[in-house]
Design a protein around this nucleic acid. Structure first.
Length: 428
RNA sequence: GCGGGCGUCGCCAAGUGGUUAAGGCAGCGGCUUGUGGCGCCGCUAUUCGGGGGUUCGAAUCCCCUCGCUCGCCCCA
């Protein structure tokens, strides 16, 4: 009919870069999410949920006009009221906006976490989709270097707890805004002298966003940069000292890390500590988790100056890593499969399944109406151990046959006749 | 936006110009009208992502297009 016609002419499918998570994969996602919630709970971090759609201005101002994310990757459109809207490309700006708007910052520092879909218009590839999912943490109103370490250690411990290994943690200090301004000057003039040795995109960035040139992957530029002035050499003593305190606290916690003086990260709001957790198993998209301090962002978005730090981790990439290690879904316990044939029996089975569920028992009711052997075959294939079988004979007497499918190869087939009370006693 | 690889049933996959497009898995039905494994039998692509073209003849050759995938860019 109509559907047939459509599927013949053009098959309807999800938009590019938007993927379905099928029942086979959702258990792993749920497992990760609940592990995350667990870690956050233990660290007194509270969940915040913000809208997926925000005014475009929020991201333009928060993330930075010169970034790629804002420049070419946002899903933006005008709504019916001519408002310029954007599907959030990341979580931090929204969380900060929500905290300001709802006066959270007047109630003392906030430890917050969020999780949900983000949208960026990019070419999909391994570990990168247009709709992707992040779990993130934002510490608003925390200045102490220990807060940097606390947030990082939560991310690190969480990932380790999931059983991941082969992860590397890189950190750097971007200094405060003055540090970056001076460094920017130093770097730009140094690069200007060697401009013709730079690759094309780096040349374009030279005045737009020079710090990003530091993690260029162009081999020529990379080589050139080996001798470039480093940010850490222009850091003020205070910034320097702050970074050292972060490092020594990291050492005290015995979290292994590498200093990467070229780690700059793509969003404008970062300052001081910046970090990334990467895995070699991910191919080109190696970063599983990234974050840093953003002391200027709250003010930039209209709040009072509030030192803050946070991170986000990419669920898809995490899942990719976990599925590489043939993670077995200990899955939900299938308890009872109910098989019935005959009018009375089927009515009773429907009633029974509901009663059992209301007693917290997991029940799958066979609704096929096919022969007993078919229904039992299905129960067996779905790996159920216990089957409740009801025919009209039993239904008349209000009884059920309980079968143990694991008893197949034994001489006496395990079957017993029982009533509801006995069933409940056994399984509830 | 730019490169490379790929597109045959829900999934895996044979087939590279010639009569009816293998096979496996899954699904459904039967052997077994009230009893599961295993086994056997049957059914499931008028069609090879879509559209044009070449040819007596195309899944197989050519062009265009769409999609997937990996990489560049960028980020989680």
């Amino acid at each position: 009919m109509a559907l047939d016609v459509i599927s013949r002419l053009e098959k309807l499918q999800a938009l590019r870069g938007m993927v379905d998570l099928l029942p086979k994969e959702t258990p792993l996602w749920q497992w990760v999410e609940s592990a995350a919630r667990d870690h956050f709970k233990r660290a007194a971090i509270k969940e915040i949920r913000t809208p997926i759609l925000e005014t475009t201005k929020l991201f333009a101002r928060g993330i930075g006009e010169s970034t790629d994310v804002v420049g070419k990757e946002m899903y933006s459109f005008l709504d019916q009221g001519e408002r310029n809207c954007t599907l959030r490309p990341e979580g931090t700006a929204s969380v900060v906006r929500a905290a300001i708007q709802n006066g959270l910052l007047n109630q003392g520092p906030q430890r917050l976490w969020y999780s949900g879909p983000m949208f960026r218009y990019e070419r999909p590839q391994a570990g990168r989709q247009r709709q992707f999912h992040q779990i993130g943490v934002e510490y608003l109103g925390f200045d102490d270097p220990r807060s940097d370490v606390e947030t990082i250690s939560i991310a690190w411990d969480f990932l380790c707890d999931l059983g991941l290994s082969g992860l590397a943690l890189e950190i750097n200090s971007l200094g405060n805004s003055e540090d970056r301004a001076t460094y920017r000057k130093v770097l730009v003039s140094w690069l200007e002298e060697r401009q013709n040795h730079l690759d094309k995109t780096s040349q374009e960035r030279l005045h737009k966003n020079p710090l990003r040139i530091l993690d260029s992957k162009d081999p020529g530029t990379k080589k050139l940069l080996l001798d470039a002035p480093l940010l850490k050499d222009v850091l003020t003593p205070e910034s320097q000292e702050r970074f050292e305190r972060v490092q020594s606290a990291m050492n005290a916690l015995k979290i292994p890390f590498h200093l990467n003086p070229r780690l700059v990260r793509g969003l404008d709001y970062y300052s001081h500590t910046a970090f990334e957790i990467t895995s070699e198993e991910l191919g080109a998209q190696a970063t599983v988790c990234g974050g840093g301090r953003y002391d200027g962002l709250v003010e930039q978005l209209g709040g009072t100056s509030t030192p803050s730090i946070g991170w986000a981790l990419g669920m898809e990439r995490l899942i990719l890593l976990l599925s590489k290690k043939h993670f077995e879904t200990s899955g939900m316990e299938n308890k009872l499969y109910i098989v019935s044939k005959g009018e009375k029996a089927e009515a009773l089975a429907l009633l029974l399944s509901r009663t059992l569920r209301n007693h917290q028992i997991n029940v799958e009711l066979d609704l096929s109406g096919s022969a007993f052997n078919k229904q039992l075959k299905r129960a067996n294939r779905s790996n159920f151990r216990w089957v409740v079988l009801i025919g009209d004979n039993e239904a008349e007497k209000g009884e059920f046959i309980l079968k143990d499918l694991k008893g197949l190869h034994e001489d006496d087939p395990k079957e017993e006749l029982m009533r509801l009370e006995a069933l409940l006693e056994r399984f509830a």
